[in-house]
């Protein structure tokens, strides 16, 4: 079963096509890296999947449902590209609110919050105000809220942004653990090496179109790195 499906999707802003004829299917349990240069349409694709925006043409399905249906976001963890929260809110407050919105209550919510605080290394910062956190710590809070309640589907937009090398390694482990549970993962990133390490599939977007997609082995030629394949596809070299 495909957890994410974009079928003939076009998204137009004014005269500009942010996405054009995009077909993409992400099977359950897989991890796909959405790659592309700036302005390729990666974040637009994520926004369509989350129902923040509607396609101009084509259809989008998440867990078999139209994204305008809130049930399509049940069991979904989302990490936005720019993690921003009300500055006066505490870390624990953010997590309590999102645990509740994710359907967790009482002891189950407390256990889930404690687990993600511990896992993302911010247990000692739970009473801190979000506004006083560094970019790296804020990204950890973002991961913590995304991982609450062991989601079935993770949508991560530039997940390692702002993290130091240790944080990047830990983020890789968090994503890896989620995958071991059978979680489907979509990572939108410029970090090719990160995608290569955590994803088994890639889709390369360029100027709103999917120029190639498939398993990493299908997209990358023997002896070639993902970076080589990326440059080849984006620059329109021989395929």
């Amino acid at each position: 079963m495909n957890v994410l499906e974009l079928d003939g999707v076009r998204k137009r802003y004014g005269r500009r096509d942010a996405l054009l004829d995009v077909d993409l299917a992400v099977p359950e349990g897989s991890a796909i890296g959405l790659l592309g240069p700036n302005g390729a349409g990666k974040t637009t694709a994520l926004r369509l999947l989350l129902g923040f925006s509607r396609p101009t043409e084509g259809s989008v399905r998440v867990q078999g449902l139209d994204p305008s249906d809130p049930r399509s976001r049940e069991g979904v963890g989302y990490l936005p590209e720019r993690m921003a929260l009300p500055g006066r809110m505490s870390v624990a407050g953010v997590l309590a609110l999102h645990a509740g919105l994710a359907g967790l209550a009482g002891a189950a919510a407390r256990r889930a919050i404690d687990a993600v605080l511990e896992r993302t290394g911010i247990a000692d910062r739970s009473d801190d105000r979000v506004g006083g956190l560094s970019k790296g710590l804020l990204q950890r809070v973002g991961f913590a809220q995304a991982l609450l309640g062991e989601p079935r589907l993770l949508l991560l937009d530039e997940p390692t942004s702002g993290l130091d090398p240790i944080g990047i390694r830990e983020a890789r482990e968090w994503i890896g653990s989620a995958r071991e549970r059978g979680c489907t993962v979509l990572v939108s990133s410029h970090g090719l090496s990160e995608v290569e390490r955590v994803c088994d599939r890639v889709a390369i977007l360029h100027e709103g179109r999917v120029v190639t997609s498939g398993t990493v082995d299908e997209v990358v030629r023997p002896g070639e790195s993902l970076e080589d394949a990326f440059v080849r596809h984006v620059r329109g070299g021989p395929s």
């Binding site: 923040f52 809130p70 976001r73 979904v76 989302y78 936005p80 921003a84 999102h98 994710a102 949508l155």
Partner: peptide, 21 residues
């Protein structure tokens, strides 16, 4: 305006929460 500006609306609506709610 405030939650739309500070990003909390985006995170909230990424949960199974309808826009009307």
């Amino acid at each position: 305006t405030q939650p739309l500006d500070d990003g909390s609306a985006i995170l909230g609506l990424a949960r199974p929460v309808g826009r009307g709610v």
